[in-house]
Design a protein around this nucleic acid. Structure first.
Lengths: 346, 346
DNA sequence: TTAGTTTGCGAAAACGTTTTCGTGTTAAAA
DNA sequence: TTTTAACACGAAAACGTTTTCGCAAACTAA
């Protein structure tokens, strides 16, 4: 087992200095054609590649982006990563991934591990626990040490950095508009507790749409789930709650859910209760996941364009890394949502 | 914006040598209690952390694992990553992710980028294109340079390294056994072209089960899809092919599909044609994805235990990295599959 | 006092690069 | 023949650590 070859070894072998080898490989004009060819041939033969770590140390930059997301077994986040990876690689960067598992502590630890020289900047979406505790010191510390952060999807206004978000309010307003236009009179909302900002915003969009159509929201039609329920098999109780909702409000003829799973489960309950989709009742969900596409009936959803978010975030970060001029100039990119109409609406 | 503080700066500030600072921070007995306390207090105040890159260079190890997968927007691979990340972090390693997008070139490039010192070892699953071309030189080169590789799921026997696989043959044999036990007489198989090893093995399991029950396979019941179809919206033609299959073989009363999506789509077609699931026809798929769980009816599947695969792979790799004794000793871990019974079977 | 032993600390090398600066040799110009 | 310029290369510093070794000063023992 031969270790990777280094400049020093080449130098020794060819009886020249390390500097000469380095220069020869970089086609420096300082070096005679003879020596240059000799060195390059030798390097090629032994498949020499400069050691990345040494370069990182010397250049004080790693050409690596740190990504921290709450969860990877999740269609949306997976798509974002793909987007990040795509442009990062295209621009000569690597991607290193940390999972917070929605935990504050893991988020902090992960950031600390990476911030000690391993990466040049962060792209991240904030863990739920962090959002609840509202403790953001680790973000501010990282930023004040000169390491740029780009936040996506779950962001915090108070923190000054680049951001990539979707217009949750507008997206859900459009969705509810669509239901109203399709003739729905009693639209239920299935959402999360308010501390998840996207849940709150999407709820607001729902309310706005109603208001615009001069309808007064009926609090009986709004189901706020504690989204611990999403994790694992508390799904049964979710099903029960939805069933109660339908039983207590026979007039419901439309449902807007703030994520894909809520919508799918609601559809399941509705069908079980004998309602016809989309004739008796119509459904719209949020997020462009695989479930929506392949459910029967397939689900109309608000598409979040996860991959695009990732691409934009990576571009934003790399721009900041490569143009120090913009150091004090932060932007927030809003990605347009669009409604993907499928079988669950008329 | 203050840069991260270094030993040198601390040394200068406190008017001692760099060595003293380093030793003080590592609680060396060489250093007097006075100096030690002074240095540690100062370091704490300025939130000193050793620079990872410098450590990597010095120690000639990065404590980072490179993972290369064909695709991340995929439930199975996402679960594997989660498993890897879990044990990697627990054992003090970071995870850096590369996507091959099923492309040979991207696989090679990604490996080259990472192999130049950025990581200590690889965990990977081979791109389809690589499997087709059967060009494995990049794996062998990496290994011969002393960088260990652990392969999972899609592996190659000829390459000598640690592997984590599932028993695809046994898993699908069990599934088909189940269908037979449930009274199915005419079981269709929906599979991929043979160059994808898992497709081939799962097909073999199907054949074995039939043989064991003294049934002769009917080639009309076997549909081999060119799995380019999986990508994007060639799904319609998949649907058509399945419909033809059903129409030409009215007696089909069971379907085994080598992945989740094929099974879901087959169920959809069957329902559209008026068949009742699971009374008229039963379905079993492969992979423990989110689709199977939330489809209606929910799909009985062979679970692959992606997360466990990731965990095992990471343990294997880190063991190899930390115990050079085992350098020549490679193992293949076979993860048991199990059948998750849901509504699509009796 | 002298010799020996601790104690506390610093210098320097090493990891693998790139780059600046210096220097000796040769060729061209005066 | 002397001066100057061009050419080809090497030495050394720097990036931030850890660690080995050496060395003074301050003790302890004789």
């Amino acid at each position: 087992m031969k270790r990777k070859i280094t400049l020093k070894q080449i130098a020794k072998e060819l009886d020249v200095s390390i500097s000469t080898v380095s220069k020869a490989l970089r086609n420096s004009i300082e070096i005679s054609e003879d020596t240059r060819d000799k060195v390059q041939a030798f390097a090629k033969l032994y498949n020499y590649r400069p050691n990345n770590i040494a370069l990182s140390l010397k250049n004080r930059k790693t050409k690596t982006i740190g990504v921290i997301i709450p969860e990877i077994v999740h269609h949306f986040f997976a798509k974002v990563i793909r987007g990040i990876e795509l442009v990062a690689n295209k621009r000569g960067y690597n991607v290193i991934v940390g999972l917070s598992n929605e935990s504050f502590d893991k988020e902090v630890i992960n950031m600390q591990m990476l911030a000690n020289g391993s990466i040049d900047g962060f792209i991240l979406s904030i863990a739920k626990e962090t959002l609840q505790q509202q403790d953001y010191h680790h973000f501010n510390e990282t930023i004040s040490q000169g390491m740029p952060i780009v936040m996506f999807d779950r962001v915090i206004n108070d923190i000054i950095c680049d951001k990539v978000i979707i217009d949750d309010m507008k997206g859900s307003k459009n969705a509810v508009d669509k239901l109203l236009k399709n003739g729905c009179k009693h639209i239920a909302l299935i959402t999360t507790k308010d501390y998840v900002s996207v849940g709150r915003l999407r709820t607001q969009g729902y309310l706005d749409a109603l208001e615009e159509h001069k309808l007064t929201p009926d609090s009986n039609l709004i189901l706020k789930m504690d989204d611990e329920l999403l994790s694992e098999d508390h799904l049964d109780s979710l099903e029960n709650e939805i069933e109660q909702l339908f039983k207590n409000n026979k007039k419901i003829d439309g449902v807007f859910a703030v994520n894909e799973l809520y919508a799918i489960i609601a559809m399941k309950v509705a069908r079980k209760m004998g309602m016809k989709i989309p004739n008796d009742i119509q459904f719209i969900g949020f997020t462009d996941g695989v479930l929506s596409k392949h459910a029967t009936p397939s689900l109309t959803t608000v598409s979040q364009h996860g991959q695009e978010m990732g691409e934009k975030a990576a571009d934003l970060l790399i721009n900041k890394l490569e143009h120090e001029e913009d150091e004090e100039h932060f932007q927030t990119i809003v990605i347009e949502t669009n409604l993907i109409e499928r079988e669950s609406t008329k």
